[in-house]
């Protein structure tokens, strides 16, 4: 029996590196031969920086994009700091895609409510860009995007945010936790946007990704609006080492986030005490 070492990354090329904010940088990666990654929105890859280590990073581009894929990384530790020192033309290691993302078939015909806090926008952008692609847009119902950041300086994908505001097939609302000079928009945590949203309760699916503290409150207010648990999807973060269900770090009660997640239907994990 021929076995493959599941821990060996494939060496890929960085074709574009662009600073996005003080802390976040955008990366575009080309696999050998321009092969497609073959991910679904919400999945992640394990990124290796030579000599430093490995970290799980969401794929931020839509699977519809061919020839390369995109990531946005916040520098917080050794691997992510080292990534920020890389330039276009450098090499890095990729394993994956891993886990389960959003099954887009389930979203067909539905109104989609996207709730993204901070860097949580990164994986959800893959879903958003899948939905708003010209060839795909009519497959889905309304697209409502609620986005919250600490300050306006921390906004990611600014060009795209601008485009969302322009397009009339996207309902986009944004808030910041703290007003900084030049901000005219809403101030307050992301949950403050929810009461203003009118939903067709029978036909809406909500997706949530953000910092750990956010989930509980957002879910509470979605429920109080009348959404059922199985209409809510969450993308969860946990410490990860192996990405393949072996090392134990990402475990929430009896499930491995790297395998079953990071995207979960809320009804699936509601009873898991450690989940949210």
């Amino acid at each position: 029996m021929e076995m493959k070492n599941i821990y060996v990354p494939e060496v890929a090329d960085l074709i574009k590196v662009e600073k996005m904010t003080e802390l976040e940088t955008f990366f575009e990666v080309k696999l050998p031969g321009g092969r497609d990654l073959g991910h679904e929105p919400g999945q992640f890859v394990q990124v290796s920086v030579f000599g430093v280590g490995e970290a799980p990073i969401s794929v931020s581009s839509t699977p519809l994009k061919k020839g390369s894929f995109e990531m946005v990384v916040r520098r917080v530790g050794n691997v992510t700091n080292a990534m920020h020192r890389l330039k276009a033309g450098d090499k890095l290691g990729i394993r994956g895609p891993f886990g389960h993302g959003f099954n887009m078939d389930e979203f067909a015909g539905k109104d989609i409510l996207v709730i993204a806090g901070g860097i949580g926008l990164v994986p959800l952008r893959s879903l958003i860009n899948t939905v708003i692609a010209e060839s795909e847009r009519k497959k889905y119902g309304r697209l409502i995007i609620l986005y919250g950041a600490k300050t306006k300086e921390e906004f990611l994908f600014r060009d795209e945010l601008g485009m969302w505001t322009e397009r009339d097939d996207i309902e986009y609302m944004v808030t910041v936790d703290r007003k900084t000079p030049g901000w005219e928009g809403r101030v307050g945590v992301i949950t403050t946007l929810i009461p203003d949203v009118k939903l067709d309760l029978k036909n809406t699916l909500a997706v949530i990704c953000g910092p750990p503290v956010m989930y509980k409150f957002v879910i509470l207010s979605l429920r109080s609006k009348g959404l059922k648990d199985n209409q809510i999807y969450v993308s969860l973060e946990r410490k990860m080492k192996c990405g393949v269900g072996k090392c134990g770090h990402c475990q929430i009660n009896n499930i491995y986030v790297c395998q079953e997640g990071p995207v979960f239907n809320y009804a699936r994990i509601e009873d898991l005490k450690e989940a949210i």
Binding site: G51, G53, E54, K241, C242, K246, C247, G248
Partner: peptide, 16 residues
């Protein structure tokens, strides 16, 4: 069987 993973460069070489 839980494990941690870390990279080590062998000092003074290109290997790790």
């Amino acid at each position: 069987y839980c494990f941690d993973v870390s990279d080590e460069v062998i000092l003074g070489t290109d290997k790790g």
